[in-house]
Amino acid sequence: MTTAAAAETAHLLVVDDDARLRSLLQRYLTEQGFRVTSAPDAAAARRALSSMTYDLLVLDVMMPGESGLDLTESLRTEGNEVPIVMLTARGAPEDRISGFEHGVDDYLAKPFDPRELALRIRTILRRAAPSATPQPLAAAPVQLGARWFDIERAELRGPDGVVRLTGGEAALLQALARRAGDVLSREDIGEALGTPEAGERAIDVQVTRLRRKVEVDPREPRFIQTIRHRGYVLRPGP
């Protein structure tokens, strides 16, 4: 199956307490070729997640009971790295930053065009799926201390096995690793992640989260270094 075909047959879980919006999204995304299950709140989403594996969550921030941000943080703490697109009526930069801090992969402010949501979902799924195209000149894995990052598979391995990365973290490390030694501006990184509108602070948050999984001491990073006034550079090494 091609990467594009895999994206089209992905199983999505849409979680929103707005019954009308939930119904519209379920119908539209189904028409776009996805399998779609819906849930009205975090409790129902947890029940769905306990009995089924989903390829991506579309998750509202403000819901009665447990919020979308709290659910995301809980899933990440439990080691569940399912890609998450967050929906919210709050579109300010600090709200996007909060979403990234909690571990979401992308962020879409209401009201939104459902075509844009479908596009973002496909982008994340393609980013997460292994490529079906042979890579005769595949890049060599990048050493990051005791860990190795496979650029083509976007997979980080250490002495204890695979290190869990969110889709956003994997894409960020992949972008840095493809140009190891080069300084990437925050704008370059935003373009590589498919979120050019994310803003500098949101990129900084993503880098901070990634450092926690790559660096021995995230406060004194050896591998993902900040170049003042310019951006970030990945410096591989033992």
Rank of each mutant, 00 (worst) to 15 (best):
M1I: 00
S23C: 00
P136I: 09
D95S: 15
E8C: 06
T123E: 15
L125M: 06
P83R: 01
D150L: 05
E191W: 10
D106W: 08
S74W: 11
G99L: 02
A43W: 12
A48I: 02
A171T: 14
Q26R: 11
I203G: 07
A146N: 09
E215N: 09
V15G: 00
E66Q: 14
F223S: 09
N80M: 06
D16T: 09
P218F: 11
T9R: 15
L173M: 13
Y28N: 03
E187A: 12
L57G: 03
G65T: 11
R212P: 03
F100W: 03
A45C: 11
M63F: 01
I224C: 13
L24Q: 10
P159F: 12
R235F: 08
T3N: 05
D41T: 03
G199D: 11
N80Q: 12
T226A: 14
L137Q: 04
E187H: 10
M63A: 02
L117N: 06
L57D: 07
P93T: 02
V214T: 06
R222Q: 15
G168C: 15
N80A: 11
E220V: 12
A129Q: 06
F149K: 07
R76Q: 05
I227K: 13
D204E: 14
S131A: 13
L71E: 09
Q143C: 05
